[in-house]
Design a binder for these strands. Structure first.
Lengths: 137, 137
DNA sequence: TAGAATACCTAGCATATTACTAGGAATACT
DNA sequence: AGTATTCCTAGTAATATGCTAGGTATTCTA
């Protein structure tokens, strides 16, 4: 998992947590998350294309979630930002002529499935709850 | 997961499956697995250093498992060959000052744990069994 | 004892990826 | 008019990937 997936997830969580305040600008986001505006610009774009956030241009603009936090999960976020599959042959089985006879292929598949299941089971709503619990300590 | 982890796992499985024939040379291995001898040389070295295989030099030499197939699991193999951790902060928490307050950190940890558990639960013995079943089809 | 087959060691290298930064254009609020 | 924002395209230094190449040391076999 690269910084794209990680920062992007943090960005989405930040936007979710600050939902009431209206659109979150990248400047605010950058400050709170200690990231550069310029890099965030690049991360947010795929998230927008994936239909997870909507943008409002101009002064006072920023980003909002395009759905309820309970309707966006981490798999959607991370997949918008990077290729999650542990090995190429899972994406493009034709890239390896051995898939049919390869016992290890099945293992990589299991790894991917378990990763996907974990990420898909966690919504932004869940993450908001977790974050609040952390902050309370 | 890079080719190191994948090819290395295939190599270990190959050595396990051909255990009765004595030490497996990289030349044989390369032929059966359709990989180059030179690259295999580089993959096998860390596996040797991790104490998973033993080498026999000179003509007629090759590699053998240093323990029973049931006593070697995939986690040991893959960890010998590459860094499995999905994000740096899991390896070196001090690399990110936000770990304590970061809700996403816990998620990456879950992903890593589940991956580790799957790999640790599979021994070379299990893989041999799986491979035999595949070949029977 | 010579030769062949092997493991072992180090270096190099082309390509791709990563993690950004930079500069500016378009848009919209005040 | 000016400012704050999103949007778009390039560029780039550093690192990782996936090898190849060349040679040395060791051991078996004829």
């Amino acid at each position: 998992m690269s910084t794209k997936g990680r920062y992007g997830t943090r960005a989405m969580l930040d936007i979710a947590l600050n939902y009431e305040k209206g659109p979150v600008s990248l400047r605010e986001l950058a400050q709170r998350q200690e990231l550069s505006v310029k890099y965030l610009e690049q991360l947010i774009q795929p998230l927008k294309e994936a239909g997870l956030v909507e943008s409002i241009r101009g002064a006072g603009g920023g980003y909002t979630l395009s759905r309820l936090p309970s309707e966006i999960n981490l798999l959607q976020i991370v997949q918008a930002l990077e290729n999650l599959s542990p090995v190429d042959c899972l994406d493009t089985p034709e890239s390896c002529p051995r898939v049919s006879k390869c016992a290890t292929y099945d293992v990589w598949k299991e790894l991917q499935d378990s990763t996907y299941n974990i990420l898909a089971s966690l919504t932004l709503m869940d993450m908001m709850e977790r974050q609040r619990q952390k902050s309370e300590l």
